[in-house]
Amino acid sequence: MSKTLHQFSVLDRASGTDATVELRGELTTRDFIDVERSWGPARLDILTRLDAANVHRAAWPESWHWNWHQKASRLSLPVTITFAAWSLRGPEAVMMVKTAPYQARLVPDVGKHLVYIDFIEVAPWNWTVPSIAQKPTLTGLGSQLVQVAVALSVSEEFRGRVGLHSLPQSEAWYKNRGFTNLGPDLHKQGLAYLERPAAQPQQPTSQSGADT
């Protein structure tokens, strides 16, 4: 079973107040099955509403067909570090990162170790889907999980370096979080590779919005 590592705050959009979620690590295949059991019906509900509203499939959320149960069965969990944000309702978001074999591409740290974010997804009830007027229940989950990756990078003595391949819609968001866009990577279907440089002392990424 997964292990509770910490707690952190996110924003409950309805009340406008902070909500506390658990940060869990070392997720097992069983945990991923629980994620799918919880998210699957909610995802299906959103798809049903999108279909009823005649929303063109190209405008559906990118993750409509992702199935965590299937993914977990094909993952090599021992080489993947997993985190989840968990509330009383269940899993709210999942992140997978790797500490090898990825290396920094950003000068002057080219070739140095970094934490690579392989995947982040939030629960369907935390999606914003304007075409069916759905607003997220909790916000701030993605931001906090990126901070978890930075914290892991620092604790691994990678000085806060984090890399990822962003989907096109997300590039601006990552740039705003202190990541540098190094352009399309032909080995990853042309997705943009972004990297967050080594953290400056006394300047966590919470201030990074001002970097851009």
């Binding site: 996110v10 924003l11 959320p61 990118e62 993750s63 690579y116 974010i117 392989d118 995947f119 982040i120 997804e121 939030v122 999606w127 914003t128 889907v129 997220p136 916000t139 701030g140 989950l141 993605g142 931001s143 906090q144 999980l145 990126v146 990822l164 391949h165 962003s166 989907l167 819609q169 997300s170 968001w173 990552y174 705003n176 979080r177 990853k188 279907q189 997705l191 919470s206 919005g209």
Partner: peptide
């Protein structure tokens, strides 16, 4: 940070 998460795909990662 939370206010920037306005889209369902703002932090979608593709690796």
């Amino acid at each position: 940070a939370a206010s920037t998460e306005t889209s369902s795909e703002v932090f979608a990662v593709g690796g």
